[in-house]
Each structure stands twice: as C-alpha cells, then as structure tokens.
Amino acid sequence: MPKEQGRKLIAQNKKARHDYHIEDTYEAGMVLQGTEVKSLREGRASLVDGFVDIDRGEAWLHGVHIPEYLNGTWTNHAARRKRKLLLHRAEIEKIERRVAERGLTVVPLSLYFLDGRAKVEIALARGKKSWDKRQAIAERTANREKEQALGRHLKGIRD
C-alpha cells in the first residue's frame, strides 16, 4: 500500500479563532493508541473543549474528543483521555515561559494527518473581550458589503 502524501484535515476549532487573538502557532505530533488512529482516519474528532497543559516539561492535550472506534473491542480507548504532545524541549520551554509571564493560553486549532502521521496545530492565544468580537464582526460585514458593491459595479448593476 502506498504511503499517504499531503495533508488531510480531520477537525478544526473555528471557535478558537473567534474567541482568541492567535499570537503564535506550533505543529505537534501526538502519542495515540491504535483505535484512536482508526477513529481519526474515519474523520471523527472534536477540538471544541480542548486545551494544552505543560506539566513537568511535557505538553499534554486535554479535552479533545476522539470517539471510540466502532469496530473496536475491549482494546478501545477512552474518548476524552489526555494525550501527550510531541514537541522539542526548547519549544515546550518557550511556550511555558510565555504562558507564565503574559497570561496566554494554549489552544488546539486543527487536527490533521500529514504524510500519514497525526498532527495537531496548537496556538498561543489571548482571550478576546466582547468588544473585540463585535469589532471583528463589524469589520467582516464592512468587507463583505464592500466586495458586494464592487461586484455590482463591475457587472454594471446600479443600487
């Protein structure tokens, strides 16, 4: 069987981009059990409640839901267990330092296969205030209206 090539997206955390200002992103591998990989290959996962915790020099992914593999037996995994992330020690120390000094949090943004290996994209993020969210929505609406007006102008349609 040929080796998988490219990137296959499994799950994305759209709510994280809405609720946080993303400052820096990292790509990390994950330590998974066999049935977790099979469940991910079926495209089943949820990152909504996920977060990353640094404990004794190791990064752990908490709250990510990978449902049990349907054809699994007694060897099935727990759906919300904590999973170890594979990062370089320097990256872990940098993340830990920035979280401690600036009050940032680490959230998962996406879960995907890259050349057959499960990866998670994590981000250092700062929580948005409610006025930040309203401002972002207003900017999106203004840009959409501007694009629509430009399209109408190019087509020769008058308002």
Rank of each mutant, 00 (worst) to 15 (best):
S46L: 07
L32I: 02
E68I: 07
D115T: 08
G6T: 08
A136C: 05
K3V: 12
A118I: 07
V107P: 02
H153S: 12
A100W: 13
V31A: 10
E68A: 08
Q148T: 11
K146R: 15
R89K: 15
K8T: 11
P108A: 00
G34S: 06
L61G: 00
W74F: 05
D159A: 14
K119H: 08
F113L: 07
H65D: 15
N71G: 07
G156R: 08
A16R: 00
A59K: 04
A123W: 01
E68S: 06
L114E: 14
M1K: 07
L111E: 04
R144A: 15
L150E: 15
R158P: 04
H77W: 10
G103D: 03
E101N: 14
L111F: 06
F113I: 10
R81E: 10
R158A: 12
E147L: 07
K8G: 01
K133D: 04
K8E: 09
G43P: 03
R144C: 13
V106N: 03
P2E: 14
L114Y: 13
A142P: 03
R89Y: 11
G63Y: 08
G50R: 01
S39Y: 04
K94C: 12
R56S: 13
A149P: 04
L154M: 09
V107Q: 02
A100F: 14
E139L: 13
D24P: 05
V106G: 01
V52C: 04
R83L: 14
L87M: 04
G151C: 03
L40W: 00
A59Y: 02
G116Y: 06
E139Y: 10
V99G: 07
T25S: 15
L111T: 05
Q5P: 06
K8H: 11
K82W: 05
R158N: 02
A100P: 02
I66H: 03
G57N: 06
T25P: 08
D53T: 12
R144E: 14
D19A: 09
R144P: 02
N143H: 07
S39P: 00
V120M: 04
A90I: 11
L40D: 01
L111S: 03
K15A: 15
R152M: 13
I66R: 06
H153E: 10
G103Q: 05
K133R: 11
E42Y: 05
L150S: 09
R134C: 06
E68D: 05
L85N: 05
A125L: 05
I157Q: 06
N143C: 01
A11D: 02
R83Q: 10
G29L: 11
V107M: 02
F51D: 09
H153T: 12
I22C: 06
H18R: 15
L150M: 12
K3C: 08
E27N: 09
I10P: 02
R158T: 08
L32Q: 03
G156Q: 05
T141D: 15
E96T: 09
Y20K: 08
V52P: 03
I66D: 03
T25L: 12
V99C: 07
